[in-house]
């Protein structure tokens, strides 16, 4: 049995809105081990954003505990969680969130800037390596606003990889992309998962994506509705090949 990367133990999260208490998560438990590619699904209001924030150590649970790579975050303060995010987590967002007017390399270097153990030279070497891994070896010094959406998302993925995280958290990472580019990005995620053994959590509301992951967790009303292992993983690369050729 592979090592448990994520352990969610009866996670609850309440928000106080005005005089009412909203129960966004009502007790969610699961664990994810190294090498899994998990999709987390749910309609809006199901609590998946809240869960993502907790998994990403951006938030703390109201009740229950969450262990990332064996470390409990329950007692951590803001700065300790920031450091944990810096070392253990790679984020990929729907809207890329690249720094404007900044080159790909500089964007990818960003997480390492907040890590004093990495020297400037090492930082650059790792950033370039990371960009090569996502297939952007020829776009190292392009600025973010000179790249297409797909390329920008690749830079964002390279940024998520650069600190060698134990987990990659993708939040609707294909949400802003067209079908073809979505499949390209998805196949990149699959490649990272299958070839390099990266653990990936992919949060989405698009049910089609479940067939490409190794496990699918469905949330509804703050509870886990389904937690199924997919033994018949579809290849995003093949799906890409089947798409009708574009008329250029």
């Amino acid at each position: 049995m592979a090592k448990n990367i994520i352990e969610a133990i009866n996670l609850k999260r309440n928000f106080i809105v005005g005089s009412e208490t909203v129960h966004a998560l009502r007790g969610v438990s699961f664990s994810i081990s190294a090498g899994e590619f998990v999709t987390i699904m749910g309609t809006s209001g199901s609590g998946k954003s809240t869960l993502l924030n907790l998994l990403g150590c951006l938030d703390t649970p109201s009740e229950g505990d969450y262990k990332l790579d064996g470390i409990s975050i329950k007692q951590m303060n803001k700065d300790e969680r920031a450091m944990l995010r810096n070392r253990k987590i790679g984020f990929v967002f729907q809207s890329y969130n690249l720094l404007p007017k900044t080159t790909a390399v500089e964007n990818v270097e960003l997480p390492l800037i907040y890590n004093n153990e990495v020297s400037a030279r090492e930082r650059k070497r790792k950033a370039i390596e990371s960009l090569k891994a996502v297939g952007l070896a020829d776009r190292l010094y392009h600025k973010s606003n000179q790249m297409s959406g797909g390329q920008q998302q690749r830079v964002a993925i390279a940024r998520a990889l650069v600190n060698e995280p134990v987990i990659i958290l993708a939040d609707e990472a294909t949400g802003n992309l067209d079908t073809r580019t979505s499949f390209e990005i998805l196949s990149l995620f699959q490649e990272l998962n299958q070839k390099e053994g990266r653990t990936i959590i992919f949060v989405t509301h698009n049910p089609e994506l479940a067939s490409f992951s190794s496990r699918n967790i469905v949330l509804r009303d703050g509870l886990v509705l389904e937690d199924t292992v997919n033994n018949n993983i579809a290849s995003a690369y093949e799906a890409l090949q089947k798409l009708p050729k574009l008329d250029d």
Binding site: D79, A82, N86, N163
Partner: peptide, 16 residues
Amino acid sequence: TREIGLRMSIGARGID
């Protein structure tokens, strides 16, 4: 604001 959010999510502390 978004840049600040991003920096924080990838590990920048308040002091940074």
